[in-house]
Amino acid sequence: MPLSRRTERRGGGTAIEDQIVRITSRLVAPFIQVYGIYVILHGHLSPGGSFSGGAIFGASLVLVALSFNLETGAKQISHQLASGLESGGAFGFILTGLIAIAIGGNFLANRAAGFPMGQAGELFSAGAILIITVFVGIKVASTIVTLFYTIIEGEE
């Protein structure tokens, strides 16, 4: 079996199917994902945050899709799930802001509205900041994946 071959993809484009690339990316992808989640969760403690972490996480899915073929990649996160996560992430952000109104602060208030602040410097601290970071991180990751798939499909 040849180590590397070019296969026909849907619509006539070609994808490189390479054993080395495949195995490496399969090995590396989970670590990238864990790192992405780490960056999202530690947004209020270290450099990084929602956008960087979400982009890292989304990039790992894109990497898998590129090194295998689109179908295998698409199995990891379906279109419906991705767009649901997007709407959910963005709406969760607004919901956090509205909860702040409901418990007596202004829109998007954090300490003034009484979110639990915790001890500064620990993981579960900073009230609404952590919640919003997670929501935006989810949204960014799904956005990167959706953008990738949509533009690829448009090229067919």
């Binding site: 202004n106 829109f107 208030a109 954090n110 003034a112």
Partner: peptide, 9 residues
């Protein structure tokens, strides 16, 4: 008179 709204307080 004019209203001023502070986001996040």
């Amino acid at each position: 008179g004019p209203v001023f709204y502070h986001m996040g307080g």
